[in-house]
Amino acid sequence: KIEAAKSPLSISDTPNTFEEITTYNNFYEFGTGKEDPAANAAALTTDPWSITIDGMVDKPGTYDLADVLSGQPLEERIYRFRCVEAWSMVVPWIGFQLSGLLNRVGVQPGAKYVAFETLVRPEEMFGQKSPILEWPYREGLRLDEAMHPLTILATGLYGEEMPKQNGAPIRLVVPWKYGFKSIKSIVKISLTDSMPQTTWNMLQPSEYGFYSNVNPTVDHPRWSQASERRVGAGLFAGRQDTLMFNGYEEQVASLYAGQDLSKDF
């Protein structure tokens, strides 16, 4: 069991079950089916693990995971999780604010973006043997998004170490953005002054924008984002309305003041 403090940033919804959260995953490194990651992720070696932090930082280097975690206060954050495919869950993550790590390595004044990369290890992540996405999986945030208190690096859920299919040993969670922004099994964090390339945007820029904020008024070109199905709600539960910024509007809307969100989707 991981000890973690409660957080005022948690929502009061009942979380999905551990079973649901760990058997219904998109993690194409382990296959494209929702149950593939649970079936195939056991092969992943997560210890030892290190993260390379580079770019516009004062203390670049390759840090052992224990070093990355040291001094960062772990909290339980019960967040809504909204997939771009219009399903959602509520997940009790355990993690610490990304800002804590970034402050520790020292972000240089010119830095504007944070880029992340997932491990590439095809012999353990068999999905990487097919070119369905361009590996490594890449994601990125604007620096102010990365420094926001809601943005965490998660190392566990439900009091357990992060299950491999959920992005062990350490993953990003950005609750107001579609799930694919919350990159898993991170091995590299780079501070840059230009907008980094991101995997789904590289594949289909018209469908997956850099921001990818949850927004019921901006549809995916092929499907509506107005509503969502809460996984685990039951066969006949139907749908619920999708909330602006996934319900975190009050906390994050100011980040995008003056931006046209239908263009910066």
């Binding site: 092929r222 509506s224 107005a226 199905r229 139907g238 749908r239």
Partner: peptide, 21 residues
């Protein structure tokens, strides 16, 4: 219609004119 869209007729009608799939 019933399980996925939960009988949200207006959303379905929207899909029927907008969504290629």
């Amino acid at each position: 219609v019933v399980l996925d869209m939960g009988l949200r007729w207006s959303e379905m009608a929207n899909d029927l004119v907008k969504r290629w799939y």
